[in-house]
Design a protein around this nucleic acid. Structure first.
Lengths: 219, 219, 219, 219
DNA sequence: TATGAATGAGTCTTCATTCAT
DNA sequence: CATGAATGAAGACTCATTCAT
């Protein structure tokens, strides 16, 4: 316990013995692969190469493990993104702001391998165990920021008035998270294996920009 | 789905108490609420008010029950839609064809209460148990039809060339199924309780039509 | 299932296959030997020669097993005694009535091998799991009947006025149940192995009659 | 029990934080509340506000902790009482001697809050873990002294000959310890909340003196 | 003296499945 | 057709105990 004073919470675990971090990593990975309810604790401990008793030593029980995963893994990654959304209204023209945010959002979500699946399974699915927590933490800034932006754009005449401002956040998530979560699925389709995150981002931005419609000459 | 279509053996027997159908209904409902893995068979039998032994009598084991649900409930409902998609290339202008199909698609999916959630949980999620079956049955016509249509439109100059034709089917599903599946979620947000299927359809079509961009004067 | 229509509830279990009764017997025996909390369910199932799953099949969980033991074993045996106590006030002289009841009470309790120990462990001990149930069912008639009798006797002058009528029930139980429960203990003491239930009853009655004091010549 | 009596090694060290004593106190309290088998060691350590490892450091394992509790808490309190009983035969008239002892015994037991329950649970109950030790240490002087006294009284004609001298000790304990242990139980009965140790002692002595029978005029 | 980490063994419970009737 | 009885396997959690520090 000499040089390892910085253990627990934060930063890469150079410290070999930090089983707690290993357990959290194992948990978030398996939760995203199989869903929380369908992940037995012993699968997590096998994956982390520790005994089931140790998991209970650190987290007490399954709900508390989930709680720890939420706080130390999920929220730690997503809160910054949500805050970005909350600050969208900084003066940039609405459509540019949305484009910037979308790019940032897709990049972030795509860079966390377990995130899109976890989100689909435990936030978007009814009875999802992260629904309550994540929504109360993340939804307000995210939806509010975007919605205001769209409403402003519509008022100014720079955003399509036929679009429902209230549904834009959900559509944006549907287009991005959803596409990321199903990537293993569609990347198997013919000629689709070369679509990378960049390509996906461009596609989403193109759709958001002018839909299927051809862009104006001036745009 | 004529009344006696789903019965396997013997005469039609109009007998009301068809336990097998009740079990399939119970299964599809609970599967969509909790996911397949997280639904114990005895929950299904309790819901259907029969004994667990009867479920095994009819279906043998859980995988076979799932199989039966897929064939007699899910595919029975979705094959017609997929066929529609397969026939999109009938001469209608691409964008009109896509609009028609989207409208039809959203209406169909929205009219089957258990479908969006089941789809999210067992098709879009990795390890989803319906993935394989549904994809091999439905994906080819659905994706192929749409993709061809988009490619044709792009060739003709009537569809946004910046959009990736290969990703259009997934985007369309993301915009529609996803929004439907998360309806209980966002309908709780402020002022969102009055968005009905019609409103959602209009929003999706507006987005598909011109994105966030303002429609051309001529369009 | 032909001739065994009388299964479940009541009478000797001639019916070989009645595992439920065997489980209750095993439970009441082991509960009395080790206490409820200290009796693992698997000890019960081993004793009854069935699998743990069967115990849960019949009783659901440990609390419900305890509940079943209380109702089908303990109360079934004790309610009649309590009713007897409730009818003590029938006109017999108080001291005779008490003597008759005491004799009956000791005989009954002594004839149920597991009863005294179960009583000591789960009723008299704080945190005893049968306390609440048994007391609310049995204490009222038992204590009330005896207490009234003593009060009547004291009013008539036939019962020692120095005795506290409120404590007579507890003293009677102390003298009898307690002596029965500790029999294995004191029967090991020198020359005590020949004291049978009859001898114990006579001793208790002698004490209750005149205490350590020598009886009146007339008595 | 002088302050440094119970410490094993080293100088007396008046240091307040004597963890070992705290653990013994916690143990004896919880053992009496829940029984030894049903008290997890970590409940004891939580109660004593120390770590489980410390308990093992001091006592090695559970049986040895029990052993320590017996010696340093239970026997330390009860040996003096038993010695008193052993010296009953000092010339006082038997009934007076018994009365004196009973009064002393009840007072002592009543003054140690955890004693009556611990006694009921771990001495009177079969499989009680204190049975062996306490009996071999305390029963001989206690039972022998009382029994001799009663036999002498019966020989002299001053004690009821119908009483079984061998059962008098057990009856005395039944009347007193048992009533004390169940006090929380009967003190809830109507009008019984005002019975204190003194009242209980008087009741027991009245019963022992003349039973339910009315005292002689001369007595 | 004191503790955090770690574990094997065991307890309670659920669940899919089988089988005789 | 339908069911009650029965079970093996596994999952969640507890607990006494050990050990390096």
């Amino acid at each position: 316990m000499s040089a390892s004073k910085s253990r627990r919470r934060g930063r890469p675990k150079i410290d070999a013995g930090d089983q707690r971090e290993k357990l959290l990593d194992a948990a978030v990975t398996l939760f995203s692969e199989h869903g929380i309810a369908a992940t037995p604790l012993n699968a997590i401990t096998r994956y982390a190469k520790v005994t089931p008793a140790l998991l209970h030593y650190y987290f007490g029980n399954k709900p508390q493990l989930v709680q720890a995963v939420v706080e130390e893994r999920v929220l730690a990654r997503l809160r910054p993104v949500a805050e970005t959304a909350g600050q969208l209204d900084r003066g940039l023209p609405p459509r540019e702001a949305i484009e910037t945010f979308t790019r940032h959002f897709i990049m972030t979500v795509a860079s966390i391998p377990w995130l899109p699946q976890l989100w689909v399974k435990e936030v978007f699915a009814t009875n999802g165990q992260l629904r309550e927590v994540l929504l109360s933490e993340l939804a307000p800034p995210l939806t509010h920021g975007l919605r205001r932006l769209v409403e402003r754009g519509q008022a100014e005449g720079s955003i399509n008035p036929n679009v429902d401002a209230r549904l834009v956040p959900i559509s944006l998530i549907g287009l991005s998270v959803f596409a990321l979560a199903t990537r293993p699925l569609w990347s198997q389709l013919p000629d689709c294996d070369d679509i990378d995150t960049r390509g996906l981002t461009d596609h989403v931005l193109a759709l958001l920009d002018t839909g299927l419609g051809v862009p104006h000459a001036s745009a």
